[in-house]
Amino acid sequence: MSDAVIQLRGVSKRFATRRAETLALDDVSFEVQRGDVFGLLGANGAGKTTAMRCILGLTHISGGSLRVLGRERPSRHELFARTAYLPEEPQLFAGATGREHLAYFGRLSAVDGVRLPARIDETLTLVELGDAADRRIGTYSKGMKQRLGIAAAILAEPEIIFLDEPTRGLDPLGRKRVRDLLAKLAAGGATLFINSHLLGEVERLCNRVGILDNGRVRAAGKLADLLGENSLLAVRFALLGEPGPELAGAERADGGLWKTTVPDTAALAALSEKIAAAGGRVVSAQAERIALEDYFIRAIGREEQA
């Protein structure tokens, strides 16, 4: 039985002004299962944030069907009692300390008052802000603010955590700390919904993805399935001398061999002929999973060509 916590079927969202109408989401369909780490990918302006805001009820959808936690378009109040949202730039109360900020959000999320102080300490430790808990947020670095935003999101132990570009604007070290933190949450069984255009990070964290381009879903599903279906054949071949222009793109490999990739067996047959014509021979050909970045570019490019 499907354990989908988020289901979008043909969702559209229009923004209308007096002069023009923009279709921000067009027939968007995908689903997220409980325990998934879902990455919604797309370039800037692809519609990722709009999709997230629609799911969270922060903006109304113009058409289609949207189910979250088993309910068709649940109320905002109901939704935020069971989920948490970290916006692109988490807005924190600069004059308050990290602990006060969490205490406030904990009370708003109806965390048990007796349990709250211990839960705050636990969360601060998890996000590695225990030492800075009693400092004003105004003195925090950007990375610390981001981690405090995540702490505020996970404080009430929500069923789904929505994160909009959680590593945006962070330095490499800050990005790694946030990524490690999200990996920890995922390992703990949390359902994460991450908007990002950083493909490498999504590939490392997510088990399910959706690719959005100009408001349309170009691909959606389990990452392993998507990348597995689109595997390449890595071909290693022996050749005397340098490859000619007919073998352009081949790179040096171990053992004095050359290496290149082809999309399928038909292309492999054609390549073998070229190698033989150049006086060489194919040593091995094996399937190789493509990187998410290549898949993303292919998915977007295929649609553009179409």
Binding site: E78, Y85, P87, E89, L108
Partner: peptide, 12 residues
């Protein structure tokens, strides 16, 4: 400063 939006991401 956006803190109203943050507050409204709670069940309130």
């Amino acid at each position: 400063d956006g803190t109203l939006r943050s507050t409204l991401t709670r069940p309130i």
